[in-house]
């Protein structure tokens, strides 16, 4: 039952670069918000500031109205799960989980009860006596999660917790974590550079680049209606075409699309699934390669000046490399000065 407010937080590292630049975010009670961005976007630094491991150079962080900006980690109601799980290898699983409870002077029988309950929750009942080094990567990450959860933190912080696991395990664990998070209704801030993770887990996604917010929205909105060219290019596959708008038409090489905006340079964005193709004798775009994925096909094609585009097609067997092609975009968006200025109704 906790809310997190991040108000205009800035982190300037010695040397003058702003890792996080006047960042603001409100996380509602029980909400799971993903911080998504490439490495160096400042998402981990932001999370570490919420956890108390980095000091902001400006701004405020409050949890349930209490200002925690300058509190050390041990006095914050936050629980962090690290990418490298950071389990204490000289303790067994039980001791790892009991350590925080002991620091709170909880009686031994209550500690035992709580540890067993949380082990059950993460699916590791009966693992208390194991040494952490005897566990698999997925089990270690579950223990790390349990270590945070057992203290019932107001805010759960997850720093790329699945990055060191293989694809299959990652998918299973993210479902489990999402289930646990929803069952406990714990307010969660989740850092990842994997868009699949963000799209499948988050209530809202914060797309970050260069320490700044590019867009904050529900996952489907971030995908369908990216507000900046960066978001458009970062989430999913997107054809981003630089060109000129002249007299209501976007022009790049032989490719033109009606675009009702003022003349000038613009970036056109078309999803591969929104770009239909038709065979054509006219000079212009041509098929470079066709890949058949069974459920669908992907056609790589070149404009006359060599610009490479991708189109998702239902019947890849209709296309051959070298073939002339006409482009029929169904939905487009256009960006100018780093902002969306046009979006065709889908």
């Amino acid at each position: 039952m906790s809310v997190l407010h991040i108000v205009e937080v800035t982190k300037t590292f010695p040397g003058g670069t702003n890792a996080v630049d006047s960042f603001s975010l409100d996380v509602a009670d029980g909400e799971l918000v993903c911080l998504l961005g490439p490495s160096g976007s400042g998402k981990s630094t932001l999370l570490r500031m919420v956890g108390g491991f980095e000091q902001p150079t400006g701004g405020r962080i409050t949890i349930d109205g209490e200002d925690v900006t300058h509190l050390p980690p041990e006095r914050r109601p936050t629980g962090m799960v690290f990418q490298s799980h950071a389990l204490w290898t000289h303790m067994n699983v039980f001791k790892n989980l009991a350590f925080g409870l002991k620091l709170r002077h909880m009686p031994a029988n209550l500690i035992k009860e709580k540890v067993e309950a949380v082990l059950e929750l993460v699916g590791l009942a009966g693992y208390g006596d194991r040494m952490t080094t005897q566990l698999s990567g997925g089990q270690q990450q579950r223990v790390a999660l349990a270590r945070s959860l057992v203290l019932e933190p107001k805010i759960l912080l997850l720093d790329e917790p699945f990055a060191s696991l293989d694809q299959h395990l990652r998918e299973r664990l993210r479902e489990e974590v999402r289930d646990i998070q929803q069952r406990l209704k714990i307010t969660t801030l989740f850092v990842t550079h994997g868009q699949d993770e963000a799209l499948s887990m988050a209530d809202r996604i914060v797309v970050m680049a260069n320490g700044k917010t590019e867009q904050i929205d529900r996952p489907d909105v971030v995908y369908r209606n990216p507000q900046t060219p960066f978001v458009a290019g970062f989430i999913g596959t997107m054809n981003l075409i630089e060109g000129e708008v002249q007299g209501g038409h976007f022009v790049r090489a032989d490719f033109t699309v009606p675009l009702p905006i003022a003349d000038g340079p613009a970036t056109l964005a078309i999803r591969p699934e929104s770009l239909d193709l038709a065979a054509s004798d006219k000079p212009g775009a041509s098929v470079h390669r066709v890949t058949d994925y069974g459920t669908h096909g992907l056609v790589d094609l070149d404009l006359a000046d060599g610009t490479r585009l991708k189109s998702m097609v239902a019947h890849p067997d209709l296309f051959r490399a070298g073939q002339g092609i006409e482009l029929l975009p169904r939905a487009v968006a256009a960006y100018r000065n780093n902002q969306q200025i046009y979006r065709s109704s889908p």
């Binding site: 956890g51 108390g52 491991f53 050390p72 980690p73 041990e74 006095r75 936050t78 629980g79 962090m80 690290f82 490298s84 950071a86 389990l87 204490w88 290898t89 350590f99 925080g100 620091l103 709170r104 790390a144 270590r147 945070s148 203290l151």
Partner: peptide, 18 residues
Amino acid sequence: VDRRMEEAARDVGASPLR
């Protein structure tokens, strides 16, 4: 010694000395 281990201990409530 892994710094993250020490940070994890701070996170669960241990003072620097602890």
